[in-house]
Design a protein around this nucleic acid. Structure first.
Length: 295
DNA sequence: AATTCTTCCAACCGCCAAGTT
DNA sequence: AAACTTGGCGGTTGGAAGAAT
């Protein structure tokens, strides 16, 4: 089953937006609000794809957007968050008020990646790449292939939901209330990371992948690495949305899949009521990132 | 001044997950 | 449960603008 295009592309305007198109889109959204992108072009009288309208609004026309002049502080934050999150541009941008994922991504690709990889290598790369990419493949691939001095610590998540917190029984811990969770978080910070990361995946490990590599300023992974905590997930949206950057909910935490991990041989399994405490844990994680960002 | 090269970034594309029918 | 729609994300591209030759 292929995805159907969001709209017929024949006869639609493409490329740069004109001032009048911007005005029409802005007026329409101011009057009717965001959303319903598919129908928007027709209703607004724009000869554009809905997707294009959405992108134009989100990346350029929204009133709260800051453009250009990324400050030193913002730059440092981007670097730190990228170290932590990898190319999760929307998450990184969520930490930078007024900045869009596209801008952060562009800024990274045009400024920071070069800066961090070393200007000499990049210049050499560019010269070689443009003149004859095949002439020296190893040089051409230098930025990607070369191992960094300290492997970046990347937490990769998918936008899906946490459902369970599991504590291995051999640890003799039952996490039943908020206090226990606080202790867990506190204890985890003091632990030496295990040599082999212990993270229980549920039936689909692809939903939650962590690239473990330890350095000293990533508390989230320290916590997740700890022997104390195993997280059973159908993902970890908690870190992305529910408890973190884009948090808009303050009430209901949409846990699901009660039946998950019921056959787990070594875990005390917590259903949705207890798992609500995960929200608090995520808040803790979030505050650690705030701390990192402020350093 | 003309041409070529390089950089930057807005916009596009394909894919994915969640929601809806 | 399957088919389909929608919104969102990250990678990539194309062209404008500036720099270099």
């Amino acid at each position: 089953m292929g995805r159907t295009p969001c709209c017929s592309k024949e006869g639609l305007n493409r490329g740069a937006w004109s001032a009048s198109e911007d005005r029409i889109l802005t007026q329409y959204i101011n009057a009717h609000g965001e959303g319903k992108w598919r129908d928007l072009p027709q209703k607004a009288g724009l000869n554009r794809c809905g997707k294009s309208c959405r992108l134009r609004w989100l990346n350029y026309l929204r009133p709260d957007i800051k453009r250009g002049n990324i400050s030193k502080e913002e730059e440092e934050l981007i670097i730190r968050l990228h170290k932590l999150l990898g190319n999760r541009w929307s998450l990184i941008a969520g930490r930078l008020p007024g900045r869009t994922d596209n801008e952060v991504k562009n800024y990274w690709n045009t400024n920071l990646s070069k800066k961090l990889q070393g200007k000499t290598a990049q210049n050499q790369l560019n010269k070689t790449k443009d003149k004859n990419p095949q002439a020296n493949p190893s040089l051409y691939q230098l930025p990607q292939a070369k191992a960094p001095k300290s492997t970046p610590q990347v937490i990769r998540t998918k936008a899906v939901r946490c459902t369970k917190v599991i504590l291995p029984q051999q640890q003799g811990i039952q996490m039943t209330n908020t206090h226990d969770l606080d202790n867990l978080a506190s204890d985890a910070k003091n632990l030496q990371p295990p040599s082999v990361p212990r993270l229980v995946m549920d039936d689909d490990t692809s939903n939650f992948m962590i690239d473990f590599a330890i350095n000293d300023d990533c508390f989230i992974s320290d916590l997740l690495n700890s022997d104390f905590l195993q997280v059973g997930c159908d993902g970890i949206q908690s870190a992305d949305h529910e408890c973190g950057y884009n948090s808009s909910s303050g009430s209901d935490y949409p846990f699901s899949a009660h039946e998950m991990l019921e056959n787990s041989p070594n875990g005390a399994i917590f259903g949705p009521p207890e798992a609500l405490e995960l929200k608090k844990l995520c808040s803790f994680l979030d505050s650690e990132e705030e701390w990192i960002g402020s350093q």
